[in-house]
Amino acid sequence: MIIDKSRKDSREKSGQKSDEELIFSVQEGSSEAFDQLVTRYKNRLYAYLLRLTGNPDEAEEFAQETFVKAYINADKYKPIAKFSTWLYTIGTNLVRNRIRNRKRRPKVWSLWNHNLDDGGGWMEIEDKSQDSEQNADRDKLQDFIQQAIEEIPGKYRTAFVLREIENLSYEEISASTGAKLGTVRSRINRGRKYFKTAVAPYLKGDVRFKEK
């Protein structure tokens, strides 16, 4: 929420249009307004979907598809929820549907069950400074954290990521996932417990990234 507020404040200060004003312009046929929304949300949405899927290519594909769906269905947007919540809802549903389809075809490699032997569970977040050892250590830590996030079962992971990383309120998560407030609360807490268990080896010192 703090991040949201600061983003909103900075927009107000710079005299930019709000998300809702922009989407109303899109409804009237302005593609420039939609370009602004894409610029505004592309990184946040991409980061969110990357946390959910753990796969940069899939995250990019989902993020692009989310924006396409938002544009095509712009006239269906109603200001009962924030634009960002609506966007997260579309993205979450896309990922959820993909998982559902994969579960029906169990032979296909699953998004949620990575095979650690072939390195499928590890993702590259940034590859800008491989030269620097310090940065390499930080990358390893980030990979470890991402791996821990992926160990949280899907339905808890969505709520966990939306709360702990995207800083959405319970009400917004409820609107995005379609779950009741009580369910959202319990999913977040269970996600937190799973995450704590997954990072426990690092906290206990069993896993280290700075050997040298």
């Binding site: 592309k42 990184n43 991409y46 940034e126 702990e164 995450f195 906290l203």
Partner: peptide
């Protein structure tokens, strides 16, 4: 454990995204 999440950097969408 949850403090570790602060170590995560926000990944940037690819250049040709838009």
């Amino acid at each position: 454990g949850l403090g570790l999440l602060e170590e995560l950097s926000e990944p940037q969408a690819p250049d040709n995204f838009e």
